Computed example of a mutant assay.
Amino acid sequence: MSRETDGVDEAIAGELRLMDPSVRMSKSLARQLLDPEFVEVGASGRRWTYEEMLQALPEMDGASEDGPRYEPSEMTGVMLAPGLVHVTYETVIGGERARRSSLWRKREAGAGWQMYYHQATPVPPEAM
């Protein structure tokens, strides 16, 4: 496997971990996966910062073991530059569909990949 493929695979694995209820419930696990400069523009249009997301994540959809879970599909990634991966995919949770895009970065050798930016765009039923 090439270093480029490894980076894409690691970013996708991180993306999937962030959908895991046990990670969403744990600030320490989520902190490992979110870059300190993280920003998200959610499907609601709200802009989230790193600290806001860490506080809210345990209460958000997908955080309960017995509640609705994110169902990702069509997940793909591309290395944009050394240490920067773009991941795109779609999710369904509770009947709501969204197209998602994330930037993952690795700041230094030996460090893990972290989500730097995330954008979710709702897909209206008529567009399905």
Rank of each mutant, 00 (worst) to 15 (best):
97 R>I: 04
120 A>T: 01
10 E>D: 13
28 S>R: 11
44 S>N: 11
83 G>L: 08
61 D>E: 10
39 V>Y: 01
110 G>N: 08
27 K>Y: 00
89 Y>P: 04
56 A>Q: 13
118 H>P: 02
112 G>E: 08
53 M>K: 08
94 G>Y: 07
30 A>K: 05
53 M>S: 10
54 L>H: 04
83 G>K: 06
12 I>C: 10
123 V>P: 03
51 E>W: 04
58 P>T: 08
34 L>C: 09
57 L>G: 01
7 G>C: 04
73 S>V: 03
78 V>I: 13
41 V>S: 08
27 K>I: 06
6 D>N: 08
117 Y>N: 09
109 A>Q: 13
79 M>K: 13
127 A>H: 07
115 M>L: 12
47 R>V: 15
98 A>N: 10
55 Q>M: 04
1 M>A: 14
109 A>N: 06
90 E>V: 08
51 E>C: 03
103 L>I: 15
123 V>A: 02
84 L>C: 14
21 P>E: 06
56 A>V: 03
13 A>C: 05
20 D>P: 09
61 D>T: 10
110 G>T: 10
52 E>V: 08
8 V>P: 02
125 P>K: 05
17 R>T: 06
88 T>S: 13
128 M>A: 11
4 E>P: 02
71 E>F: 00
49 T>A: 06
28 S>M: 02
6 D>C: 01
64 S>W: 10
106 K>V: 05
69 R>Q: 15
35 D>Q: 01
57 L>N: 05
3 R>M: 09
57 L>Y: 14
64 S>R: 15
88 T>F: 07
46 R>W: 01
64 S>Y: 06
84 L>R: 07
122 P>Q: 00
122 P>F: 03
45 G>Q: 03
83 G>S: 11
24 R>M: 10
117 Y>I: 11
25 M>C: 07
